[in-house]
Design a protein around this nucleic acid. Structure first.
Lengths: 302, 302
DNA sequence: CCCGACTATTCCAATATGGAATAGCATGCT
DNA sequence: AGCATGCTATTCCATATTGGAATAGTCGGG
């Protein structure tokens, strides 16, 4: 039997992550056409549909879920191989970063060049699909949580400042938001890893009951943001991840509603690996850059 | 960064298994040229040598060991994906076999057609690189051992009959074997999973001390057999695996020396999966075919 | 019923792949 | 030494695959 190509695997993973062919194409630096064909090729190979073509993008079928999972395992293995051999090669210093996809897309890609320009000798490697076990290979892991991980040194990175946003169209159509209670008139986009965000918000303002059918759960942050832009409903998103959209007016934050979240992004390094040399430079740079990107005035940039 | 192609991964895995470019090429149904190029491509990709070109084949470097391991993980994931989706497809009955490479190469490939001819509707799938965890996906696992696996139903398959063999050239050069004690004059090829075979043989005949430096340990059975054919020394091999070589005179079994091993190949099925329908047919067929292949008269075949 | 936001398809150029033949390189035998 | 042997590396070339640009098709919403 024929095996899928590695780009096919990347396509599957990217589709799962971004939810649409076009978005996946951008993420992979391919055209929509190429992605569409790769997907079709894999589906032909296994004789099953992997994604149901739904209204606003692709939804994995049962087979798709299985395949996505294994594609990630395979890609993870290749990443692990690359990282471990790079360490063996040891020609130039290697910095291995484990970055959650959303951070990679929305924060790192634009800014990392600032670091690599200063340190052209350093081989910066991204690890995205790695399993937990592969954490021992990396120098820095960016995590989402409350800042406590045994054996890891954690610094607040970004994302504490969570804001309520929606597309202008959405707000208009729903009659606008003049008071926080108006939120109840909209559909709410939920991210499974942070379902408590909404509860937290309502608690702050005094309570609000939203029936579950008025929420949409989207498996990736990227989808939540896209959904909000596309007018699916209101979202709660760390402000730093959408500075561009806020600046461009694609998303707006009515009444400045938001809160400080306990759950945010942290920069963590293994305790046993002291932050020195290149690693130290990187941590200092990343934390400074993150702080800068959270300052309101620094937020306006393409 | 570019990723290796999936054929490159298969090449790496096959090289690790067969130890030479040419043998790997045969196993993959490619030319030696193609395999050589793929290997070179991967080495260029990661900037390291994966195999040291040694006297009789390729020996993995440190980087090679890492890479081989991850290539197997990646291929295993793809196999798992294929198997699990095939089950979902469910168009025609699927039979998933986990087969050790040596059995696949030396026994199944030639005989399986006898089964598929009788059951053209059945989708027979091989699983080779699968992790232990993936065992739950398979219908039949061929294992090497003593026949006891909790939760598994085991039938003796083949390989009990272990014989001492060497290339005719080897035997001539070493002065022939007129008595079992003459074994001490030869180098012995050892397979790490069955190091006790030699002890077992010597015990049977009354003891013999072989200094360790007179042995060569080869990591795969395929290499042991190849080594014996190539004149590296004497080997202890299940007779069924080398019927062709014995018939062709490439290997000879002086004096008929050999013994019944406790460690041999077993056909096992999970207890919770009753042997019925296609599964039953396959087990019956495989066991009968194995028995037939172990009969001396049945042994002569190309 | 058209518009917008998608995905699928077609055509074509660029690239990668794999086979056949050949060269190169050690080793062991005479 | 010198040749035969059993490998791997390289070159050349036909073919298959890939990916981009443009185009067509699809679906839901105002």
């Amino acid at each position: 039997m024929h095996l899928p190509s590695t780009t096919a695997l990347r396509v599957i993973a990217a589709l799962a992550q971004h939810g649409t062919v076009s978005a996946a194409a951008v993420a992979l630096s391919l055209t929509q056409s190429a992605v569409s064909k790769q997907l079709k090729a894999v589906e032909a190979l296994i004789g099953l549909t992997l994604f149901n073509r739904a209204r606003h993008g692709l939804v994995p079928t049962e087979a798709g879920i299985v395949y996505i999972e294994q594609a990630r395992v395979a890609l993870g293995a290749l990443e692990t191989a690359a990282v471990r051999t790079a360490r063996l090669r040891g020609s130039r210093p290697v910095l291995r970063l484990h970055v959650l996809p959303i951070l990679g897309d929305r924060w790192f890609m634009q800014r990392l060049i600032g670091f690599t320009d200063q340190h052209p000798d350093v081989d910066v490697q991204f690890v995205t699909y790695a399993s937990r076990e592969a954490h021992r290979d990396v120098d820095v892991v960016f995590r989402f949580g409350e800042g406590q991980w045994p054996g890891w040194n954690a610094d607040y990175f970004l994302g504490r400042d969570v804001v309520l946003v929606g597309a202008p169209m959405t707000l208009d159509r729903g009659g606008g938001i003049a008071d926080w209670r108006d939120i109840a008139r909209f559909r709410l986009l939920v991210h499974p890893q942070t379902p408590l965000h909404w509860d937290r918000l309502f608690a702050q303002y005094g309570g609000l009951d939203i029936p579950p059918e008025q929420t949409i759960t989207l498996s990736y942050y990227a989808l939540v943001i896209r959904g909000a832009i596309g007018g699916q409903g209101l979202a709660l998103v760390p402000r730093t991840l959408i500075t561009r959209e806020l600046a461009a007016g694609e998303l707006v934050n009515p009444l400045g509603i938001g809160f400080e979240s306990q759950n945010c992004y942290w920069l963590t390094t293994p305790n046993e690996r002291p932050r020195e040399g290149v690693l130290k430079h990187f941590c200092v740079w990343a934390l400074a850059e993150a702080a800068r990107s959270e300052m309101p005035q620094g937020a306006v940039s393409s």
